[in-house]
Design a protein around this nucleic acid. Structure first.
Lengths: 131, 131
DNA sequence: CTATTAACCTACTATGTCAATAGGTAATTT
DNA sequence: AAATTACCTATTGACATAGTAGGTTAATAG
């Protein structure tokens, strides 16, 4: 289940995309979206660290996209905020390989589902969510 | 992300399907699958309550499927154990409708993903996981 | 009838995540 | 200098996850 971190992040991206290129203060985004500004700060901080946005301090500052909306996939936003799009623990990157993997009868199911999910979200672009 | 409740439940179902129709004690399933028997008890209890299995007490007892493997969809097993296959809170049954739903620009994305997930898991049958 | 097997039941716990809140500091512009 | 805004650390309450512990009931084999 996708949590508020990922969902709010996408809404911030859409909000920024609507104000094309300009700096938008978080206060305005929070008000428009009806989300706690303090909570958004945490989320947006990670978005900056992850290279989705840039932040500009001081009067007239705010946040803005650093690419065109077509250049963002929804999948990369979700994975940055929520971690890998893995449906089960044994498919996580860096997880210790399950000793039963070789003859696990459920693993192919989870792999197929992961592929489906991955393709779905990486196929969607931020620009697809606008208008 | 699908938790052990759903994953273990599916493994129990597969294990039972392999021992066709006969009663299988939980102890044996736990040993074969390498899962704590005590923890499985909790899971299996809900599976009985949800109509996936029947339990037979006493010597020679155990659990068995109450339908043919083709008659179980993976989706119903998962939804019984994990709750509705909803990707976001605002799509849960019984959730108070979001006041922003009417012009939410992300809702169609979540609905499409839910449909994809639902169709995938309800299209899979228990019998598809065997062999 | 008794011992054994196995399901069934209630309760508890450690750990972690989620969704925030609180209060401050640093940077930039007017 | 004042105002605005991003940026930072820490804490909290509620809840879910993945179990553990110990007991009771039901049914069968000998």
């Amino acid at each position: 289940m996708i949590s508020t971190r990922g969902r709010y992040a996408i809404r911030v991206m859409i909000d920024l995309a609507a104000h094309n290129g300009g700096c938008v203060p978080l206060k305005d985004i929070a008000a428009r979206q009806g989300i706690s500004k303090k909570y958004l700060e945490i989320i947006v901080k990670d978005m900056v660290a992850g290279g989705l946005l840039v932040g500009v301090s001081g009067k007239g500052g705010g946040y803005r996209l650093c690419r065109a909306p077509e250049e963002y996939s929804v999948g990369e936003i979700i994975e940055l905020m929520e971690g890998p799009l893995a449906t089960v623990a044994c498919l996580m990157d860096g997880a210790e390989p399950c000793p039963r993997a070789a003859d696990c009868q459920t693993l192919p199911l989870w792999e197929e589902y992961r592929r489906l999910t991955h393709d779905f979200f990486y196929g969607k672009r931020l620009s697809d969510l606008i208008g």
